[in-house]
Write a protein that binds this DNA or RNA. Structure first.
Lengths: 148, 148
DNA sequence: CAAATATTGTATGGTAGCAAACGAAATGGA
DNA sequence: TCCATTTCGTTTGCTACCATACAATATTTG
């Protein structure tokens, strides 16, 4: 018998559900192409905006340096992305799609509707409020903890 | 100079932002106690509901078997949770807080407001719709991909 | 200019999550 | 009863995320 994944354990409350459900959907689709969802975002950005310095890509996709660094290294290992030094600033790395990367991108089904469903439809005002509440709560707690 | 974490890289779109922001807040607070946010949820459940079979805990917190298994093993390693065999079903493991686990729980600040802010206030109808859309999209894509 | 500081990317180690495969135990049907 | 199936927990291997620390390079300041 096939030992398939549990279906009784979906994910927690709604932000978690929407976030992880969207990721799960993308992952399920991208598994056929041996790609992760964040890897897809990187290819997406490079395919639409052309070569990019790693720093800028990180800001655009709102990923931590360290996180992006890992993602990029696996994409380089898969020969989908190339990392060259950008002439100007010797610290920066310029990212470009390789031929294989462009070929794969053209083969991929259009996932932007997933992106929209899972991550779109944002109520920016509500988001801003939530984030502000969380931030001030963090600060209060941090202050309290420092005193202990 | 202190090499602190980037602050320019918050997280992506709003589900991601809310989900990860909530986790980040809990993690920042719990770091002082060497606890992760999901570990906190486990202690929380055990402290409020008493001993629990691992299967039931998994369903209550909506965690995958494999995910929970890992979490439990680190909590056992930290001697906060005990895993005994539940008399009836020899496959099941009964989880209880150890003395150290209860002591730690009593020391922890109340994080339920974070839980509420980050994960509460769910519009269940909207959630259900979103999840349904995502699921049918998954199925459509899976079918398409199987045919290729 | 030299020294202090900031920025960029990398590496390490941790948490959290999922899929797949496995053993052990329970259950259901022929 | 016996065999197939299901359930429960674990393990392995992967993605993704963060914090921390570090080297290398830029930039700012004295």
């Amino acid at each position: 018998m096939r030992d398939q994944a549990d279906t009784d354990a979906s994910v927690g409350a709604w932000t978690k559900r929407c976030y992880l459900a969207g990721r799960a959907l993308m992952d399920a689709t991208l598994r056929h192409y041996d790609l992760g969802s964040t890897q897809w975002y990187v290819l997406w950005h490079l395919a639409h905006n052309g070569a990019s310095v790693q720093r800028d890509l990180g800001r655009a996709l709102e990923l931590e340096r360290a996180t992006l660094s890992g993602i990029i290294s696996t994409l380089v290992r898969k020969d989908l992305v190339e990392q060259t030094s950008s002439g100007e600033d010797q610290r920066q790395r310029l990212l470009t799609l390789t031929g294989a990367g462009e070929a794969l991108w053209r083969k991929l089904p259009d996932l932007s509707f997933i992106h929209e469903t899972a991550f779109g439809g944002i109520d920016e005002a509500e988001l801003a409020t939530t984030v502000r509440v969380l931030q001030s709560a963090t600060e209060r707690l941090q202050t309290l903890l420092r005193k202990v």
